[in-house]
Nucleic acid binder design. Structure first.
Length: 574
RNA sequence: GACUACGUAGCUCAGCAGGUAGAGCACAUCCCUUUUAAGGAUGGGGUCCUGGGUUCGAAUCCCAGCGUGGUCACCA
């Protein structure tokens, strides 16, 4: 394993600690009776508070001045300054706890426990005067050091690749990241409270499904050995929740991790979270009211106000939200009333508006394209769009009065869909026809068409009450509620291409080639970190390179002969 | 999938009329008992993403690949 200079220094420090009889990774319960933020908000000079406190956390900065030092300690809530004075922690003759252990063997990143009392420095900073400290865990890798003054950040750790691959570092170093995920969880908690207060039952349904349904998407496929069968990771849980409505629950919901085998971008992660809710004896109008109430509550719970800043916009979730039918929205943004048009007229409108369509698209798809291009991006404040074309909605109930449409709505916010809901289709014969239309699309090559689920139809045939259903994208909503520009910012471990680790040969492998151990690190540094690379090397070039490195590192070892080098490479010494 | 930008020290970045690799932070040594993004001095640390090509000579120019971001396409 190749270690940087700083890593070697830390490992040496680790060994020295052990030699001093200090366990660098002790176990036990370490009492903590305060937190950083609590102290910073409550402490006042002369208040008599916090005279004997214990804290644990990570060292994030050190300013050493001879026999005293200031340390930045970070716990789960924030940072506080510590003051460590040599003669306080080393009252006797032996000053090694300060001079050696603290000054030389501790580093930024180490996790420590401290005990002391709070005071305020001459600079006015609330600080803990440390009487006692203990190392809880030694850190072997240098942490990026981010500094800040007057809200200006210096050397910010912002490379997205490193931030997402090493989220633990991101969380240590960027306090706003922790904040985003706390808000996300508060959002989920807020929804759960809202739904539980109404008596709906939180359930769990299968993630591994023999048939994937409930949405139009390509699935991930897997295999179960004992059952000798193909299974799919769910793309939605809709059909299972509706089975539960058939079963007699009158309100069920699930926070569902769903999986779709499609492209990734700043709005799509292959695994994402939806909350789906189904309530019997209700319709989509009723569901709109529920969504308004729930999202308004979320904004209030997270921000204490209904107004949320998202990018350039201030979005206000206060009820009631604007409502448009899809036809009204299109007329509003384009001035064209398409409600009575046939497919030919729609095609003309599309080309007139510069909306790209192709011959395979039917009426519903064309309308959807026009809406997606001309309306959706401009809907910034939360808006309900209702009454979608039937072709696009194979699981939604026919509109009670408008032919060709279904009782469906989406809430659009910041130019993006945040939820999708309908009066659920509960007519089993109609549902069978819709599935068959989907099968036809599949036969024509649509890879995302739905598959026919006989068991689901059987359930509907037993009778499902009129039901309102809702799917709400948790990641998308979290992006809005935390003002995050990308889905990766609201998923702790977003999907990334697997990190390729460079293969590095062990010392034994080098030695097996007859290479003296002193040369092994030199060879690695010269670029031959794997013996295969070494075997391919040109012996003359290698020989010269070794000579150079020997000089550079002032090595006291004899230079190998050309013959020896050729032997390492398994060449005849000709 | 297409286009585009980027990939240099642990971190943030400079260097690109091709000529021996730089800064700040971090790290090491020494001096400093209330400092604060950075006290002072000195010093160490690089397969300049990988592989080819052009060239006497490539971090720099060209090609390919890998990785990441952005835009577009796809994703109701």
């Amino acid at each position: 394993m190749h270690l940087s200079e700083q890593e070697i220094i830390r490992r040496n420090a680790l060994q020295e600690l052990i030699n001093l009889g200090i366990d660098p990774y002790p176990t036990g319960v370490f009492p903590v009776n305060a937190s950083t933020t609590e102290i910073l908000t409550n402490y006042k000079a002369g208040s008599g508070l916090y005279e004997d406190i214990s804290l644990a956390g990570r060292i994030m900065g050190r300013r050493i001045m001879g026999a005293a030092a200031f340390v930045e300690l970070q716990d789960a809530f924030g940072r506080i300054q510590l003051y460590i004075k040599r003669d306080d922690i080393c009252p006797g003759e032996d000053k090694s706890l300060y001079n050696t252990v603290f000054k030389k063997l501790l580093d930024i990143g180490d996790i420590v426990w401290i005990r002391g009392y709070v005071f305020i420095t001459q600079m006015g900073e609330t600080t803990i005067h440390v009487k006692e400290f203990k190392l809880l865990a030694k850190s072997l890798r240098p942490l990026p050091v981010v500094k800040e003054k007057d809200d200006k950040v210096f050397d910010a750790f912002m490379d997205p690749e490193q931030r997402y691959r090493q989220r633990y570092v991101d969380l240590i170093v960027n306090p706003w990241v922790r904040d985003i995920f706390i808000k996300r969880t508060r959002m989920v908690n807020s929804m759960r409270e809202f739904l539980n207060a109404r008596g709906y039952l939180e359930v769990e349904t299968p993630i591994l499904q023999p048939l994937y349904g409930g949405a139009a998407a390509r699935p991930f496929k897997t295999y179960h050995n004992a059952l000798d069968t193909t299974l799919y990771l769910r793309i939605a849980n809709e059909l299972y929740l509706k089975r539960l409505i058939v079963g007699g629950f009158d309100g069920v919901y699930e926070f569902s991790k769903d999986f779709r085998n499609e492209g990734m971008d700043r709005f799509h992660n292959p695994e994402f979270t939806q909350m789906e809710l189904y309530v019997a004896y209700k319709d989509y109008y009723w569901m709109m009211d529920l969504v308004e109430q729930m999202v308004e509550k979320i904004a209030l719970d997270i921000h204490g106000t209904t107004q949320v800043k998202v990018g350039e916009h201030l979005i206000d979730f206060q009820r009631p939200w604007k409502r448009f039918t899809m036809f009204e929205a299109i007329e509003h943004f384009t001035g064209i009333d398409i409600s009575e048009m046939d497919e030919k007229q729609l095609r003309e409108v599309a080309s007139q508006l510069g909306v790209e369509i192709d011959d395979t698209m039917g009426k519903g798809k064309i309308i959807d394209e026009i809406f997606g291009e001309k309306c959706e991006p401009y809907l910034i404040q939360p808006t309900f769009i209702t009454d979608y074309p039937i072709e696009m909605s194979p699981l939604a109930h026919k509109h009670r009065s408008k032919p060709g449409l279904v009782e469906r709505f989406e809430a659009i916010c910041n130019g993006k869909e945040i939820c999708n809901a309908f009066s659920e289709l509960n007519d089993p014969l109609d549902q069978r026809e819709r599935f068959e239309a989907q099968l036809e699309l599949g036969r024509r090559g649509d890879e995302e068409s739905m598959v026919l689920d006989e068991d689901f139809l059987r359930a509907l045939e037993f009778g499902m009450p009129p039901t309102a259903g809702l799917g709400i994208g948790i990641d998308r909503l979290a992006m809005i509620m935390t003002n995050s520009p990308s889905i990766q910012e609201v998923i702790l471990f977003p999907q990334m291409r697997p990190e390729k680790r460079k293969e590095i040969s062990s010392d034994e492998e080098y030695e097996a080639l007859g290479i003296p151990s002193v040369w092994i690190p030199i060879l690695r540094q010269a670029g031959y970190s794997h013996i295969e690379a070494l075997k391919k090397a040109n012996p003359n070039a290698l020989f010269n390179q070794l000579g150079g490195l020997r000089k550079k590192h002032k090595l006291e070892v004899p230079m190998p002969t050309m013959d020896e080098v050729r032997k390492w490479l398994a060449l005849d010494s000709a």
